[in-house]
């Protein structure tokens, strides 16, 4: 029997867990919706060019935390955010920060595919247009094609770029939304249960895409599927009742988590 010490195991696994520079950092993040507190001082580092999965039971604050990362919570009137969130060391809640520019750097893909009621082409060109990233028709053509390529959708839609995005299948719409997010060259992509409305094949395509995207982007994904978290992410953070319970390498979280609440949740023992 081949026995490895814990140290040797650590060493062989090292390349997988190579500590990445932190792209975003949440420090003592608190969120209130009116009187109700939804996050209680969350400290979390999002490593650069890796996929981080946020898991936890419904209502624990995953979406709330995710929305803090690109100030999407600003759009909710009663929402107050405390603590700080850093992007490359800069506080994104600093009043001097341009929120539109921030959301170009930190893009978002939602649970339900939500293409604009426009053509496939326009859905992707929209971001670069409002952010002034392209001017000429040829530039738009290029950014539309490469974004659709990267989202793994181009071949399926190249002959109908001017048909409405809403006419695509659910899985194609979700990849269109990912293409739309990529088109503005974000640094971070936030995804809130991006596959919950998709069938297994469409899910597999999106997961494969996520795996490719991490070459160039930092990704934070909220998911209710433990298997999906295990498949796509390098690190996993577990939330419970507005607190971060545990964060660590995904392999460890799914084979031998430290916290009892994580164990109970991922093994299906929560009441």
């Amino acid at each position: 029997m081949n026995m490895l010490t814990d140290a040797a195991v650590e060493e062989t696994l090292q390349p997988l867990y190579k500590p990445a520079a932190s792209k975003m950092t949440g420090k003592d993040v608190t969120v209130h919706y009116g009187e109700k507190q939804a996050l209680f001082g969350v400290n979390l580092e999002v490593p650069e060019k890796q996929v981080m999965a946020l898991i936890g039971p419904s209502g624990c604050g995953k979406s709330t935390f995710l929305r803090c990362l690109n100030r999407m919570n600003d759009t909710i009137d009663i929402c107050r955010v405390g603590g700080s969130i850093l992007l490359d060391g800069e506080d994104i809640y600093d009043p001097r920060i341009d929120v539109v520019e921030l959301r170009a750097r930190v893009g978002m893909v939602f649970q339900k595919p939500n293409p604009f009621p426009k053509s496939i082409y326009e859905n992707v060109a929209y971001g670069p247009r409002i952010h002034g990233l392209a001017w000429k028709k040829s530039e738009f053509d290029e950014v539309v094609e490469t974004s659709l390529q990267k989202a793994g959708l181009f071949n399926e839609v190249k002959d109908r770029l001017h048909e409405p995005g809403t006419g695509l299948s659910g899985g194609q719409q979700q990849r269109l939304c990912i293409a739309r997010a990529i088109a503005v060259s974000p640094e971070v992509i936030l995804m809130d249960e991006p596959c919950s409305a998709l069938d297994p094949i469409a899910t597999a395509k999106v997961e494969e895409l996520i795996d490719e995207l991490r070459q160039n982007y930092t990704i934070v994904i909220v998911t209710h599927s433990m298997q999906q978290a295990a498949r796509v992410s390098q690190r996993t953070a577990m939330f419970h009742l507005g607190n971060l319970v545990e964060e660590g390498p995904t392999e460890k979280m799914f084979t031998n988590p430290d916290d009892k609440r994580t164990q109970d949740y991922i093994t299906g023992r929560f009441g």
Binding site: F254, T255, N256, T262
Partner: peptide, 10 residues
């Protein structure tokens, strides 16, 4: 059927 996790998987 269950896709066991953590100690169940072990």
């Amino acid at each position: 059927k269950r896709q066991p996790m953590a100690q169940d998987l072990r």
